[in-house]
């Protein structure tokens, strides 16, 4: 464990909690892409099946349980409890265009052709593009609530910190996982224009509005 990975995990946890609290407190999921949240639930489910097969640490296990629990709770709030506030018209990204190619790639490019390893690889590839429906929805509505931008900032920051973690681990532990690194770079790059808008607008107290 190193400082980048720990702060990355905490940033990820913060994002998940911010979103859950935003929906719960405001009793509304306006501006939130339910499709992205379903993809994240799939990402955690396929990645953390090793909860059943291997134990790494209390921290590892508890974080995985929290991530999975919050992901499904968020999906439940969006599609069940507060479904009247779900903006399905703007959440129109065709996720099959993500899941199918990612599934195919996971079968072709992986570290080991075993069931759990292919699912882990699928989860890594899927996570790198899972935010696209959310970013697409914001581009369609042309704006985002400030709390949603904080959620996205923490979510984007987490994988950027993981990139620093992989540099650290390469240097100090001569560990590197090309699949995770490449997917992590793609994932972080997808946030770049959002990061620019967040830093130049939201941090200056303005509302995040895209040129419609």
């Amino acid at each position: 464990m190193n400082v980048f990975r720990l702060t990355g995990d905490l940033s990820h946890l913060a994002a998940i909690i911010i979103l859950l609290l935003k929906i719960w407190k405001s009793r509304s999921c306006a501006g939130i892409s339910g499709k992205s949240q379903i993809l994240f639930a799939i990402v955690f489910t396929t990645r953390y099946l090793d909860l059943l097969t291997s134990f790494i640490s209390i921290y590892n296990t508890s974080m995985k349980v929290i991530y999975i629990g919050c992901a499904y709770a968020t999906v439940y709030l969006i599609y069940m409890k507060f479904r009247a506030t779900y903006d399905g018209n703007h959440d129109s990204f065709r996720v099959e265009f993500l899941v199918v190619p990612v599934g195919g790639l996971a079968v072709l490019v992986n570290h080991d052709f075993s069931f759990l390893e292919i699912l882990w690889t699928f989860s890594i590839y899927l996570e790198s593009v899972a935010i696209l429906p959310q970013l697409f929805m914001i581009s369609k509505t042309g704006e985002a609530e400030t709390i949603t931008t904080h959620y996205l900032f923490c979510l984007g920051l987490y994988r950027a910190l993981y990139l620093l973690n992989w540099i650290w681990r390469f240097y100090f532990e001569s560990f590197f996982d090309m699949i995770a690194i490449v997917a992590g770079v793609v994932q972080t790059v997808l946030y770049c224009d959002f990061f620019y808008l967040y830093i130049t607008k939201v941090l200056k107290g303005k509302k995040l509005s895209l040129p419609a």
Partner: peptide, 10 residues
């Protein structure tokens, strides 16, 4: 491919 496939990261 006996890589240590125990993924210790979240």
């Amino acid at each position: 491919k006996a890589k240590n496939l125990l993924h210790d990261e979240l």
